[in-house]
Design a protein around this nucleic acid. Structure first.
Lengths: 116, 116
DNA sequence: ATAGCTGGCATCCTTTAGGTAACTGGCATC
DNA sequence: GATGCCAGTTACCTAAAGGATGCCAGCTAT
């Protein structure tokens, strides 16, 4: 029987972890929303204005998904009219270095394309 | 006229950078493929085996996209039969910290879910 | 000779992400 | 009393991503 190849097993494991992350943050909108909310934008319409191009429907769905993954917290205040406030959870802070990395890479990549 | 709000402008800029990155790296497969190739898997069928569940059609398309974004290099050797070799470009190395971050986060997230 | 490997391509189909538009109910404003 | 803001929901639709299957041509090992 062939020997188990630890390299390949390790890589397969890494790929699985990567896919777990992708499962949570995949799509066009989740990370941009997180940036906006983390920065302090807490109201639905304000978030929508902060993330250019997003529609109410998509924003609503994405916020629900983020809430389910415990990255944002939704609070409803019993004012009149009811106020809804979105904030990032403490757990969301663990994504911050990743997000900063992506912002930096995107900036660099953009500059690089302009040079060509 | 209202004052320009530097915070909001800065956040909008960050979101744009983030979206530039997502444009390159978004989707279910690109980063996993990059991990496999970067680790040294260079042949088409080997890459396919390394990324569980991917089909030839999708792999082929993703490799082309990655090649266009200068993240992988495709070399054809004039052997018989022709050998095709995929490698990561030097530019791809700039994504490595990001990828490692995502792997680490995914692992942590997975562990966290198991604890609940 | 025949089975299997290589690096894919072609065709067809399903699923999902995302977009458009209209609408709600309660309040404030003009 | 009409308009507009808030925080969404609903129904419908398109485009893109992804999946299943079969195939090719040239080589190799049995």
């Amino acid at each position: 029987m062939p020997a188990i190849q630890p390299d390949q097993a390790a890589v397969a494991q890494q790929i699985r972890h990567l896919q777990d992350t992708l499962y949570v943050v995949n799509g066009k909108w989740k990370l941009p929303i997180l940036v906006a909310v983390h920065q302090g934008t807490s109201r639905f319409r304000d978030i929508q204005r902060s993330v250019p191009g997003i529609t109410t429907k998509v924003l609503s769905a994405e916020l629900k998904a983020l809430e389910q993954n415990k990255l944002v917290v939704r609070r409803v205040y019993d004012t009149s009219p009811p106020t809804v406030e979105y904030t990032t959870s403490p757990y969301c802070a663990t994504l911050q270095t990743l997000i900063q990395e992506m912002i930096a890479w995107g900036k660099n990549h953009h500059d690089r394309l302009r040079e060509e």
